[in-house]
Write a protein that binds this DNA or RNA. Structure first.
Length: 671
DNA sequence: GATGACTGCCC
DNA sequence: ATTCTGC
DNA sequence: GCAGAATGGGCAGTCATC
């Protein structure tokens, strides 16, 4: 064993969904071939309503239907599935125009199909057909549909949170369907997905009156309502909203209502796939419109798709760029829906601008200085910056002097750091800018001394007042993407860096410690120095050449990060003994993980940490077998000193010693 | 008002 | 954050 | 290599409950 991540004891009061349901999963499904709950002959669309009055269905039969890629399947079944998919996609184009809006059931069935599709190209095509069908008759429903498919309610910086998790959803399902907690538990244990569980429970629901069918718009608006619900009794009001969706659901809507609420849509299509699908849909829509053709089948669409391949590719490229500079579906879709003939102006309309965050560039993990230099190449000078142990921050200085701060995932965190905001007020010669930065905690009495992320994370997160700051910070700016009205992301890092130094070498902000070198020895010494100053390692960047432009959202070749725990032989180590374990979830179902490790001292084993990474799958398997064979204990021995709140599933004989390396930043307290 | 369960968001 | 997987 | 989905620890904020 080379390396293990270390962690503190879990607090004990906090439960994961799995713990809430007391699940020790053994046969949880993680494959994409989870069942449909709709059979081919149940998609017989009626004249008046898209939604067929489905009779009771069992999951066993739909299980069979969707097992097309498993080994013991007949070709007959595979064909059956294909026919079903084809029928469904045709049916989507034959929807009768109705005032209510685009049926959510059509979205849900499409997501079911998507989940069973592993090919990315097919996924794009299926999703694209859905979007096209919406565009043809319900263009105003496209945005809600895209939000539902991408599992979002609003742009990330808009501070709209559902405030709904596994616990609340489970309660809602139990109350609506009168399913007992025990049944829910065992279903969850069996399927490993709350959406699947909801689908099974809701499909058994008997109703006196069939409620009106759900529209994509209605489901989306309900999500917004749930997000807006707060204050006293908000939890039960949220629950009521969830329940009314579940009550109105038709197969397989409940599955996706729940998956969307729990933020795990699990259909293998999130962002890039949706962009590619949308691009294709808009191009085909344009072609259909100019031809004046009536679309009633998928085959017609296919024809256009082949014809317009080049244009599609171009638009998708534009959309990708637009989305990385302005991750705002509303803005992009509004433009495309309203302005279908001036797509070349998309990147003008959705471009980098202060006030809207762009996706930050990420660094590629590198295991050694040698490898880093090889990766970045020798054509360009390499800038090696200390990688500070803090929080990523994108600083926006807007024309009128307003400053806004965004996190790595584009959340607005302006109100968390009023001190950082004031650092950027009134910088001479700067009217607007976008900067990339790291916020690091510092020791209040020695502001040169950086403190670990652990300490920074204790800072209050909302509406921090300047005079009530407990955690002092410093902001380290390391890139400049926009300055005084000019976008810089396509300039070389050397040029951006020059502008950064010229305008932001001011007292209130700091530039990272930097060494420009391609000498292995020099860089290794520099890495050690960074680490001994409390940094995580180095971020190494090409100064010139094509790799030195700013790539939004990319884990690009241009940035290479070396962290001390990637590098052999740098970390400190401890000798620890496994004394207990839990059953793993998901991929690790059936194996022991995590293990509880202890150190031996004076006749007792004192628990130190849990360890859950660092083993290969094979090692998990053999470790599990090794301990289960004859090394388990029925109860906790008295000489195991373990925190009360920890309840391992299995106690183990102390019989193996592991050498663990750990990260100093975790501030371990060893008894 | 204190506590604990739950959720979201950092890494 | 890291890690794994199918394409 | 990419995109997506799986996994982890640990913190603050919010709300229900006692």
């Amino acid at each position: 064993m080379r390396r293990k991540n270390m962690c503190h004891h879990q607090q004990g009061t906090q439960l994961t969904l799995q713990q809430w349901l007391f699940v020790t999963t053994k046969d949880r499904r993680t494959d994409k071939q989870t069942p449909f709950s709709l059979q081919p002959n149940q998609t017989n669309f009626t004249e008046t309503s898209y939604v067929s009055e489905t009779t009771e269905q069992t999951l066993t039969t739909s299980d069979e239907l969707l097992s097309q890629s498993s080994t013991n399947v007949t070709e007959q079944q595979a064909t059956k599935t294909q026919v079903f998919v084809g029928n469904h996609m045709d049916n989507i184009f034959q929807l009768q125009l109705q005032s209510q809006g685009f049926p959510f059931q059509a979205v849900a069935i499409t997501l079911d199909i998507l989940q069973a599709t592993s090919s990315r190209l097919s996924s794009i095509e299926i999703l694209s057909d859905l979007f096209l069908a919406i565009l043809l008759k319900y263009p105003q429903d496209l945005l809600p549909a895209v939000y539902l498919c991408t599992n979002r309610v609003a742009a990330p910086w808009e501070a709209v949170e559902l405030g709904v998790g596994g616990s609340l959803i489970s309660k809602a399902i139990m109350e609506v369907t009168s399913v007992s907690k025990e049944t829910l538990r065992s279903l969850y244990k069996q399927y490993g997905d709350l959406g699947d569980v909801a689908q099974i429970c809701c499909s058994r629901l008997q109703r006196l009156f069939k409620p009106n069918y759900l529209t994509a718009q209605h489901v989306y608006q309900s999500l917004r309502k749930i997000a807006q619900t707060n204050g006293v009794k908000s939890v039960s009001r949220k629950k009521n909203l969830i329940q009314s969706l579940l009550v109105a659901s038709r197969s397989p809507e409940a599955r996706y209502i729940v998956r969307i609420l729990s933020q795990h849509i699990r259909v293998g299509a999130v962002e890039k796939t949706v962009i590619a699908a949308l691009g294709r849909a808009f191009i085909i829509l344009d072609a259909i419109r100019s031809n004046g053709e009536e679309i009633t089948s998928r085959a017609q669409v296919q024809k256009y798709s082949i014809e317009r391949k080049t244009e599609t590719k171009l638009l998708v490229e534009r959309m990708n760029r637009a989305f990385s500079e302005c991750s705002d579906w509303e803005r992009i879709i509004t433009f495309l829906v309203n302005d279908t003939h001036s797509w070349n102006q998309l990147n003008e309309f959705c471009k980098l601008q202060p006030g809207t965050p762009l996706k930050p560039q990420l660094g590629k993990i590198t295991k050694s200085v040698d490898e880093m230099i090889k990766d970045l190449g020798t054509d360009s000078d390499i800038s090696c910056e200390w990688k500070y142990d803090g929080q990523r921050c994108q600083v926006h200085i807007i024309e009128n002097g307003v400053v806004q701060l965004f996190s790595r995932h584009l959340e607005d965190m302006t109100s968390k750091y009023p001190d950082v905001v004031s650092s950027f007020a009134d910088i001479s010669g700067v009217t607007s800018a976008i900067l990339d930065a790291e916020i690091v905690a510092v020791n209040p009495s020695h502001s040169q001394m950086y403190l670990p992320f652990q300490y920074l994370s204790t800072r209050a997160r909302k509406d921090v007042q300047l005079n009530q700051i407990t955690v002092q910070v410093r902001v380290i700016v390391f890139d400049l993407m926009f300055l005084n009205g000019v976008c810089l992301i396509e300039q070389s890092f050397r040029q951006r860096r020059q502008l950064l130094e010229r305008h932001f070498r001011v007292r209130s902000v700091t530039l990272p410690e930097t060494l420009i070198s391609s000498q292995v020895n020099e860089v290794e010494a520099w890495l050690n120095r960074a680490i001994s100053n409390g940094c995580e390692g180095l971020m190494c960047k090409a100064l010139d050449g094509p790799n030195s432009v700013y790539y939004p959202s990319k884990r690009s070749e241009g940035w290479s990060k070396i962290k001390k725990d990637y590098v052999e032989g740098i970390s400190d180590t401890m000798d620890l003994v496994p004394i207990a374990a839990w059953w793993g979830n998901g991929r690790k179902a059936g194996w022991l993980s995590p293990f509880l490790l202890a150190c031996y001292y004076d006749g007792e084993f004192q628990s130190v940490c849990k360890v859950m990474s660092g083993f290969s799958d094979e090692e998990y398997k053999s470790l599990t077998e090794f301990y289960l064979r004859d090394k388990t204990l029925p109860i906790k021995p008295p000489y195991y000193q373990v925190d009360e709140s920890l309840r391992p599933a299995i106690w183990l004989q102390a019989c193996q010693v592991y050498v663990l390396s750990y990260e100093k930043k975790l501030n371990l307290t060893i008894p």
